[in-house]
């Protein structure tokens, strides 16, 4: 299980290859993208700021929790920091398991916890030049069984 904090572009196809395993029956991934709007504001770019000395330990805890809760083979998290523009991938999560159900549940568990626990912060820069730090991630859906929750 691995974690990377990177200031480079995230390549899902490369990361997927690193998880390939003949004993796994399925793979599920999540990509978080920089979208062009938030709460009525037109977003031009995002600045992600991280705490590199702390984030690996937190990520490792989240991955270990996922491994303990679900029957998975492997899992990985990559989060990008620095300046991102619309369409960029900000975060990637990949999970492999013998069966599909656990890949979905574990992937959901990991990304939900990444958003709330990994020491990373984002500042939105709007198309009018103004900017604002996001004060909280609004979706509190940390229950991976709550798949009915709509964002």
């Amino acid at each position: 299980m691995t974690f990377q904090l990177t200031d480079s572009e995230i390549s899902p196809s490369t990361l997927r290859r690193e998880l390939l395993s003949l004993s796994a029956g399925g793979y599920c991934s999540y990509e978080g993208w920089v979208r062009d709007h938030n709460e009525g504001n037109a977003v031009a770019e995002l600045h992600y700021s991280g705490y590199p000395q702390l984030s690996p330990a937190i990520a490792e805890t989240i991955l270990e929790e996922a491994k303990a809760k679900f029957h998975i083979e492997d899992a990985a998290i990559v989060h990008r920091i620095g300046l991102l523009t619309t369409g960029d991938i900000a975060v990637w999560v990949g999970v492999t398991a013998h069966h599909r159900g656990d890949t979905f549940l574990a992937c959901r568990y990991i990304i939900d916890n990444v958003k709330h626990r990994l020491p990373i912060w984002k500042k939105e820069v709007y198309t009018d030049g103004s900017e604002a730090w996001i004060e909280s991630n609004h979706c509190g859906c940390t229950d991976p069984t709550n798949l009915e929750h709509h964002h």
Binding site: G50, Y51, V114, K115, P119, I120, W133, E135, N137
Partner: peptide
């Protein structure tokens, strides 16, 4: 020491 605001990654 670091004082950490609510995390907003993802």
């Amino acid at each position: 020491i670091a004082f950490l605001p609510p995390m907003t990654g993802g």
